[in-house]
């Protein structure tokens, strides 16, 4: 079975220890969220797993055949139309232009874009639309493993929920595996099977939280209840330096 395994991973920038003794295994079809405060080394961990940073200590075994990345910012190529942006990963795989266009169009429509948007340049899109394009671009290559770097953080709650629902549908229908980092606990509860709590200075996993119900069956009430419960948790309060009144 395909999996991503991180063993005894340490990472430092100069003398500054960012990540210490990270261990976890992500199996096919599962979603793991790494939750922690900003500046806690989450992005570094994700970049290490995705091979965008070189590993210095420890081991990462990635047996997924393909992976893709959706960033915090949409990072669209400004000189390419929406359609060309989405099909970028397909072109990189050597898929013909015609098929790439077709698949890109289909997924764009699935993610709530309209046909007339496809010819537009990124400058003519709203922030939410750009993030839709970014998602479509990451998913159109049908990755075995998807890396998500807080892609919802700049969206309003309505849009956030809508895109999350698209993603949840996608997880259910395509058996998608996701490594997701976020500072939003609610988002993590809604999307993941397992939450890893990463405290900062140095980045260390202090808690594993498993959520047994499949994402698509999770009701809002369940999510809220769990959120309330987690907000009473000592580790979470300490990690985020929260004070509850």
């Amino acid at each position: 079975m395909e999996r991503l395994e991180v063993k005894n991973l340490n990472h430092s920038f100069g003398f500054f220890r960012v990540l210490e003794d990270i261990n976890f295994t992500l199996e096919k079809g599962k979603v793991i969220s790494i939750v922690g405060p900003s500046g806690g080394g989450k992005t570094t961990l994700l970049h290490l797993c995705a091979g965008l940073l070189d590993l210095t200590e420890g081991e990462i075994v990635n047996t997924f055949k393909s992976s893709s990345f959706a960033f915090q910012e949409p990072r669209l190529l400004p000189w390419k139309s929406v359609l060309e942006n989405i099909s970028l990963g397909l072109i990189a795989k050597g898929i013909s232009q015609k098929e790439a266009d077709m698949r890109a169009t289909n997924i764009a429509l699935e993610f709530g874009l309209e046909l007339k948007d496809l010819e537009k340049f990124p400058k003519d899109l709203s922030g939410g639309m750009k993030q839709r394009v970014s998602f479509a671009r990451a998913l159109v290559v049908e990755p075995g493993l998807l890396f998500l770097d807080e892609p919802f953080s700049a969206l309003d709650i309505g849009l956030k929920k809508e895109l999350q629902n698209h993603l949840i549908d996608y997880i259910a229908h395509h058996n998608l595996t996701i490594l997701f980092i976020t500072h939003d606990i609610m988002e993590a509860i809604r999307l993941s099977n397992e939450i890893l709590l990463l405290k900062s200075d140095p980045g260390e996993i202090v808690k594993h939280i498993k959520i047994p119900t499949p994402q698509i069956e999770r009701s809002d009430k369940e999510v809220f209840d769990m959120m309330i419960e987690l907000l009473k948790d000592k580790d979470i309060l300490n990690t985020f330096e929260l004070e509850i009144k």
């Binding site: 995705a50 965008l52 893709s68 990345f69 960033f71 910012e73 990072r75 190529l77 970028l88 990963g89 990189a92 795989k93 290559v141 890396f147």
Partner: peptide, 10 residues
């Protein structure tokens, strides 16, 4: 950032 994005798509 764009370089990184392009790298991530191989």
């Amino acid at each position: 950032e764009l370089k990184e994005m392009v790298d991530s798509f191989g």
